[in-house]
């Protein structure tokens, strides 16, 4: 009995300890802003490996998600004779939900895990301590550029995902199933609002980019400096990111689109 309570207490304390370390780490990273501004080359190299290399994955996934939305939406909407509103359905679900959420999940799997593994391996092979010995702050030099690169890339990736998805839905709906082209776009334009839908979607993707990259770099920096530690940290990055994205998505949706 005593053991259970001790286990529970230790777990809770560990969680709070980790949250504390993570928040302190975030403050340190924000202190790296001048360093990143002074050396934009660091940021460009990271935007390449975090953002550019994810574009292909995002494009292909977005295309297929949009096509599936077009196909499924058409089947259901044509039951009500409302296949004209297919564009609204495809665009609204992509811009509001699927664009930010799915691209954040893909981003966590493709870029987040790579960030954790890279930083974790640097720690395991004592490259980070080596930099400290040379009076180079690894948080500012290694971690901060990766963090800001992730934050910058995520909204752009989500926008690409939504755009390709809408085009994919258009290809299936208008090209294959014969929905009217004009109705597809005009109904979409009439129902979607720049501030209500597009801007809220961008805000979501910024928040997701922040959270996912933060988790990724922190897990890498905080991992046990062994090969097993790195592998565990990488797994934790993907799992915690997915969890955080889905939970935050519910909160943000309730705040943005809920009536309270």
């Amino acid at each position: 009995m005593n053991g259970i309570f001790r286990f529970l207490g230790e777990t809770v304390l560990q969680i709070f300890e980790k949250l504390g370390r993570g928040s302190y780490f975030l403050v340190l990273m924000l202190g790296g802003v001048p360093e990143v501004l002074k050396r934009p080359g660091l940021l460009i190299a990271q935007v390449y490996s975090v953002g550019v290399l994810t574009v292909a994955l995002i494009t292909i996934s977005g295309l297929f998600v949009g096509m599936v939305l077009g196909l499924q939406g058409y089947t259901i909407l044509s039951d009500f004779g409302a296949e004209q509103t297919l564009g609204v359905m495809v665009a609204a679900s992509l811009v509001r939900e699927l664009g930010p959420v799915v691209s954040a999940l893909l981003f966590a799997g493709r870029a987040g895990s790579a960030l954790t593994a890279e930083i974790g391996l640097m720690k395991a092979t004592e490259q980070l301590s080596g930099m400290e010995m040379m009076a180079v702050d690894p948080v500012k030099r290694i971690v901060a550029p990766r963090f800001f690169a992730g934050m910058l890339s995520m909204p752009l990736l989500a926008a690409v995902f939504s755009m390709i998805g809408v085009l994919g839905g258009h290809g299936v709906g208008v090209g294959m199933l014969g929905v009217d082209d004009g109705a597809f776009w005009s109904q979409m334009q009439a129902s979607l609002d720049v501030r209500e839908d597009i801007l809220n979607g961008i805000i979501k993707s910024v928040v997701f980019g922040f959270v996912v990259t933060w988790i990724a770099v922190f897990e890498g920096y905080d991992c046990l400096a062994t090969s097993e530690g790195v592998s565990r940290a990488t797994t934790r990055t993907v799992v915690h990111s997915a969890f955080a994205v889905l939970a935050l998505d519910f909160l943000l949706t309730a705040l943005m689109f809920g009536d309270f």
């Binding site: 574009v55 665009a91 811009v95 890339s153 909204p155 752009l156 990736l157 926008a159 690409v160 939504s162 755009m163 390709i164 809408v166 776009w185 979409m188 334009q189 009439a190 979607l192 609002d193 720049v194 839908d197 597009i198 979607g201 961008i202």
Partner: peptide, 15 residues
């Protein structure tokens, strides 16, 4: 590409 996609969403998809 990303900024172009944002413009596409703002101009073509919404009002």
């Amino acid at each position: 590409l990303g900024i172009g996609a944002l413009f596409f969403l703002a101009l073509q998809v919404s009002n």
